[in-house]
Amino acid sequence: MEKDQQYDRFMSLFMSSERAIRSYVRSLLLSNQDVDDLMQNIGLVCWHKFDQFDMAGSAQDFTRWCCVISRFEVLQFRRSRARDRLVLSNEVIELLATHAEQHLEQSEAERRALKICLKKLAEPDRRLLLSTHTIGDSISRIASESNQKVRQLYSKVNIIRNQIGDCVRANLSLGEPSS
């Protein structure tokens, strides 16, 4: 395959799989910043190994293939951060990675449902939930700015998360949501 065609093929596959890969990696790492750091390497390694990918494979095959590569990158990354505390053991990370690889389609369906469910949230709740996951923001900061207790606000965020989780399950039980 010509290099340009290879670019096209890789680009097309990677862009369509990127969110799934990122979500997979995120499930194995503790912070979004770590994911940002690591995704550089993962993209590069996948590209370098792209000639090993079966070109007849589907987009789902490609996602799975990238996730397997990502697993090793995650483990290597964790070894370089071995001094960090408060993280799960490598054995557990391996188990979680295997579990996540077996449920890639399910995770994708959940993501689609979740986006629909988020739109159904009341605007203040939606804003609060998103704020807690915005870089540079935190529940502590929002609590301080809004003169609320951290524990109280944290409880509220968890209630919203529960609502979202219930909504996702309800959506999925009704069938594949349209995005």
């Binding site: 969110r19 979500s23 995120r26 499930s27 579990h99 959940e110 979740l114 939930l129 979202i164 989780g165």
Partner: peptide, 23 residues
């Protein structure tokens, strides 16, 4: 427990992604 972990982290990853887009 692994299934709950997968669901929760998938939820958080998606919210982070949307929060990033909103910014």
């Amino acid at each position: 427990a692994r299934e709950i972990f997968r669901q929760e982290t998938n939820l958080i990853a998606t919210i982070e992604e949307i929060a990033c887009e909103q910014g």
